[in-house]
C-alpha cells in the first residue's frame, strides 16, 4: 500500500513555543522547478512584538546563567544538530543547494556552535581590563550583554548564516529575535526544533519567517530592542535601519558579506559587538 508523506507545518518560534502567525497569513516556498515545497508563516509586526516581550522576559535570567552553563547549552545545540544532520542536508538540497554545499553548510554550522560554546567563559577575559588611573581607585572594565537584539539573518545560507549571527549573540548573554532568510526559511524553523530540545530557555532565541519589507522597520524602531544586526547589502534597508534605530540609540551592526563559510566568520569580536563595556571605579586606599 502506498503511504502518504506527512508534510511538516512550518510555524514560528516565539518564547519556546511554535505558534502560527497571529495573522493567519503564509507564503509559498518553491523548489527550483517551481513546485511547492512548503508554506511558511508570514509573520507580522504583532508576532515580532510578542517575540520582543518573550525575549525581554528571558534575557536577564539567561544573562545571569553561569558562563559554563551557557557554553554547555551551546554545545548541546551542536549535539542535537549533529544528530539530525541528514535532515538538514536534505532540507538544504530541497531549497536549491548542491549536495556538496549542503553538507559543508551543515557541518560548518555545527562546528561554529562548538566554537562559540568554547568562548563562553573566555571572551570576558580578553575584553576586560584593569585600567591605570591617576586617583586612588581600582578601575576595571568588563563586558555586559546589550540585552534584546533583533537580527535579520543572511539571505543566502539559511542555516549557516543564522547560526553564525545567533551563536555569538546568545553566548554573550543576549536574547534575540531573528528574521530568517526570506527565500530559504525552512532550515531556520527546523533549527528552532533543535533549539527547543537543547535546554535553551524559551524566549532566548525567537525565530520569525516573513518579508523583510514588512518587518525591518519595526525591528529597527521598537523601543524595547537594544541592538539590531542586519545581514545584507540593500543600502535602502541600511539607511532606514540607521535612521529608525536612532530613536532609542540602538546599536546597529551591518554585515555585508554573503558567504559565511570562511573561518574569518567566527571570532570573539562577533561576541564583542553585542557587549556593552561597563567600567567601575572602586575606591582604594593609596
Amino acid at each position: 500500500m502506498n503511504r502518504l508523506d506527512i508534510q511538516k507545518t512550518y510555524k514560528l518560534y516565539i518564547g519556546g513555543k511554535f505558534p502560527r502567525t497571529e495573522s493567519g497569513r503564509y507564503y509559498p516556498i518553491n523548489n527550483r522547478k517551481g513546485n511547492l515545497i512548503a508554506n511558511v508563516c508570514l509573520a507580522t509586526r504583532k508576532d515580532f512584538r510578542n517575540a520582543v516581550v518573550a525575549a525581554r522576559k528571558a534575557q536577564s535570567s539567561w544573562a545571569k546563567m553561569s558562563a559554563l552553563n551557557k557554553g554547555q547549552i551551546l554545545y548541546r545545540i551542536a549535539e542535537m544538530l549533529e544528530g539530525r544532520k541528514e535532515q538538514f542536508i536534505a532540507e538544504l538540497i530541497v531549497q536549491g543547494e548542491t549536495t556538496k554545499n549542503a553538507r559543508a553548510e551543515v557541518s560548518t554550522s555545527i562546528d561554529r556552535l562548538v566554537y562559540y560554546a568554547g568562548w563562553s567563559d573566555k571572551y570576558q577575559q580578553i575584553f576586560s581590563a584593569v585600567n591605570p588611573v591617576a586617583s586612588p581607585h581600582f578601575n576595571f572594565s568588563n563586558p555586559e550583554p546589550v540585552g534584546v537584539v533583533s537580527m535579520i539573518a543572511p539571505e543566502k545560507q539559511g542555516l549557516l548564516g543564522l547560526v553564525s549571527v545567533m551563536a555569538p549573540a546568545i553566548v554573550g548573554g543576549n536574547a534575540t529575535i531573528i528574521l530568517a532568510s526570506e527565500t530559504k526559511p525552512l532550515s531556520a524553523i527546523s533549527f528552532a526544533e533543535v533549539l527547543n530540545s537543547s535546554d535553551v530557555p524559551g524566549g532566548v532565541v525567537n525565530i520569525l519567517t516573513g518579508k523583510k519589507e514588512e518587518l525591518i522597520s519595526h525591528m529597527a524602531s521598537h523601543m524595547d530592542v537594544n541592538a539590531i544586526v542586519y545581514c545584507g547589502n540593500d543600502e535602502k534597508h541600511i539607511k532606514m535601519i540607521s535612521e529608525l534605530a536612532s530613536t532609542n540609540v540602538k546599536r546597529t551592526i551591518f554585515y555585508r558579506r554573503n558567504d559565511w563559510t570562511h573561518v574569518e566568520c567566527e571570532s570573539p569580536y562577533f561576541i564583542e559587538k553585542l557587549q556593552e563595556i561597563k567600567t567601575t571605579w572602586h575606591p582604594v586606599l593609596v
Binding site: R45, R49, V52, H218, S221, H222, M223, D224, L244, T247, N248
Partner: peptide, 9 residues
C-alpha cells in the same frame, strides 16, 4: 508614534 514602546521610558 507608530513605534512599539519599552517600559523603561
Amino acid at each position: 508614534t507608530g513605534m512599539y514602546q519599552s517600559p523603561i521610558y
